[in-house]
Computed example of a mutant assay.
Amino acid sequence: MSGSLGPQQLARRTSAALDAAVGAGRELGLEVAEATVLHDFFSVVVHLAPAPVVVRVPTVLAHGLDLDGLARRQRAELDVVRWLAGRGTPVIPPSPLVPVEPVRRDGFSMTFWQFVEEDRSKEPDYEANAESVAALHAAMRGYPGELGFLSAAEPSFVSESFALLDGRPDLVDAADLERARREWEVLEPLVRSRAAFEDRFPGVELQPVHGDSPPANIFHGVDGNLYSDFELVTLGPVEWDLAALGPACEAAYDRGARRHGLRPLNQEVMAFVNAVGMLRVVAVLSFVPQLPALLEYVKPAIEQWRATPFAGGLSR
């Protein structure tokens, strides 16, 4: 893990992603005159105006994830979202103006989505969002495609990140890293093995889930709210989608679950996914050299994690 990227390097990365999105869009026949960067963090998100198309260009990838692996993940996302859109679920759909598949250009793999105008007057209501996620889960239950078990946990990324963080006290305290490794010894087998998970949590049903905190990924469109960013779509317990959001959001989800005939959240599984989620936060520190601004976002969560029970209170 090398030193942090400076402002000029970050700007060049954004510019390269923007150029790749514009070039790919034009090659696909889209009219692009005033491309605008809407978002730039783990991905550069570009509106190819005047075409009603948004391109998402991932620029910071999990360690060990190459473009082929990224494209497989993107295909799963596109397929799930297209399936949901076809059944009337309120999602931001893939663009109908280009083939529904990842596009590779200039060292990037990108996806094309329908442009939706944002209602910027709305503030996120995470409890209302969490309640609405039950409707998304009810819709996703019938998805017929194959998804990997808890692939959203990215266990290889977590393990490799801990190795990369070794000897980096500028990013993580040695004591914190040692605790994270010991917790991961307890939790990793349940993440990597569906059989181990089902043995530890008998009777907890698995189903397709969003994978990346859907209450935080609801887009406020001018015509209504839309579920978005299914990049980590996975097979798992519904609890995964409520990780780290707290008791109020969990209670809100349970209200929605009752309305849609779904089971309430299992508190033992919540402890598990919360603990795994916190270890992913520690692992994300390995991205700081590529995303220096990330450190300030992560620090409060690390402090919160120090006060939690070891491995969420789960034993071997």
Rank of each mutant, 00 (worst) to 15 (best):
A174G: 10
P264L: 04
V22G: 10
E117Q: 15
A180W: 01
D19G: 09
A283N: 02
H260M: 14
L285C: 03
N225C: 14
I92P: 00
V116A: 10
A134Y: 06
F162I: 00
A20G: 11
E27P: 01
S228F: 09
E160K: 06
R181M: 09
G29E: 09
F108M: 13
P169F: 07
L279A: 02
D199P: 00
R87L: 09
A135P: 06
E188V: 01
E188D: 14
A51Y: 04
A275R: 03
P237Q: 11
A175V: 12
V57F: 05
P94H: 01
P237M: 07
A271T: 05
A76I: 00
P214M: 08
L38C: 14
E123Y: 05
V133T: 14
L285P: 02
V276P: 04
A196H: 14
V298L: 12
P292L: 06
S15L: 09
G23P: 02
P264Y: 03
L165H: 00
A71E: 14
P289K: 03
A20W: 03
V55W: 03
V269C: 05
A275V: 04
P169W: 07
V22L: 15
V57K: 02
D241K: 02
A85R: 08
P237I: 04
L294S: 05
M270T: 00
W113T: 02
P300N: 09
D254T: 06
P144I: 01
L226E: 07
S121E: 13
L30Q: 03
L226S: 15
V57D: 11
A153F: 03
C249A: 14
V32G: 06
H47G: 05
L97H: 11
E183R: 07
E154P: 00
E250A: 10
A301F: 08
A33D: 13
S161K: 00
L67T: 12
H220K: 10
V209D: 02
R200H: 13
D173H: 13
L245C: 06
D119F: 14
P189M: 10
F115L: 12
Y126M: 04
T14V: 11
P94E: 04
V288C: 05
R72T: 14
V91G: 03
P208G: 05
L265A: 05
G29W: 15
A196T: 14
V298G: 04
V91A: 08
L48K: 03
A301V: 06
R105H: 13
R194D: 05
S4I: 03
L78Y: 05
D212Y: 02
E127P: 04
F287W: 02
R168Y: 11
A62M: 03
R141P: 05
F201V: 04
G25V: 04
G221V: 10
Q267K: 11
D106R: 15
R192D: 10
H220A: 15
D173K: 12
Q114E: 13
G167L: 12
S132L: 12
S193G: 13
A307R: 14
C249N: 10
T59V: 14
G64S: 12
V204P: 01
D223L: 13
A21W: 07
L18H: 06
I218L: 14
A174T: 13
L5R: 02
L65W: 03
W240P: 04
P90H: 08
Q9K: 08
A153Q: 00
G23Y: 11
A244M: 02
P292Y: 01
V32Y: 10
A216R: 01
S193F: 12
D223A: 15
E131L: 08
P208N: 02
R75H: 07
L295F: 15
